[in-house]
């Protein structure tokens, strides 16, 4: 097996909110068609890191970024890069399921296509995305029902289907199962395993066992710094950095 090519290369990424440096000179790479987990205590910069990757970070007033993020070799912060187009390539799934509540299941999935001005019959795409999100069998007879009528776990998979509809290359997941029960969580984790054949996935999670279960590579962030990044197995069985060791074993820092 050859090592997978890097989909994203982050170089000396520093993220600043007002006067606070939330990320300090983070350099790492994210291999294509694999799952990278970001772990670390609250406030370590995990979510900020994720949001920098599709420039959601810049939507916060007073936020700025230094360093570079190369997506397939191209800096996502370039002047010629349209952030809306970027976010189509780099999709995102959030902590709490956030479907458009009154919209039907079908319209939720096709909303991204319509917003992007893609015309035509979206039925086939919707079915394909719902299948990819492992939700089709559960909703195929109620595609016209409002999204709010689905369970929390179904809503989250609906959001994943919605993110997939615009054919992204990278999927960012910010604590995608923290509001779900263990069974719904297992379904989403199973889905992540399926999706990595087609997408590059970056997942932020507080649940270290989840990172261990779903990811190929794990990065440990602490107080805005990238302490260690490595194969998930190595991080959880034999980390190199004492701070990683303390974090994964649950010791005082």
């Amino acid at each position: 097996m050859t090592a997978p090519a890097d989909k994203i290369a982050v170089e000396r990424l520093t993220a600043i909110f007002g006067k606070t440096e939330v990320l300090r000179s983070v350099t790492t790479s994210i291999p294509a068609m694999s799952v990278t987990a970001i772990i670390g205590p609250s406030g370590c910069g995990k979510s900020t890191f994720l949001r920098c990757l599709n420039r959601m970070h810049e939507l916060t007033p007073g936020a700025r970024v230094e360093g570079s993020i190369l997506l397939d070799g191209q800096d996502v912060q370039g002047r010629d890069v349209d952030p809306v187009h970027l976010r189509r390539r780099v999709g995102m799934v959030f902590q709490r399921p956030n479907p458009f509540p009154t919209m039907s299941v079908l319209d939720n999935v096709s909303s991204g296509l319509r917003l992007n001005g893609i015309k035509g019959d979206h039925q086939a795409t919707v079915e394909q995305c719902l299948r990819q999100a492992a939700l089709w069998d559960e909703v195929k007879d109620r595609l016209r029902a409002p999204a709010i009528s689905l369970s929390g776990g179904q809503q989250q998979r609906l959001c994943i289907a919605r993110a997939l509809a615009v054919a992204p290359e990278v999927l960012l997941m910010d604590e995608p199962t923290s509001a779900l029960d263990p069974i719904a969580t297992a379904k989403v984790e199973d889905l992540i395993h399926e999706l990595k054949a087609r997408y590059t996935i970056v997942i932020v999670t507080h649940n270290m066992q989840q990172a261990a279960r779903v990811s190929d590579q794990t990065a440990f962030l602490y107080m805005g710094e990238l302490v260690e990044v490595g194969a998930t197995e190595q991080i959880f069985t034999n980390p190199r950095e004492p701070r990683t060791e303390d974090y994964v074993t649950g010791k005082f820092g």
Binding site: Q209, T237, E245
Partner: peptide
């Protein structure tokens, strides 16, 4: 406890 790292070893 799902031990990790040196605890697991």
């Amino acid at each position: 406890r799902q031990p990790a790292a040196s605890d697991l070893r």
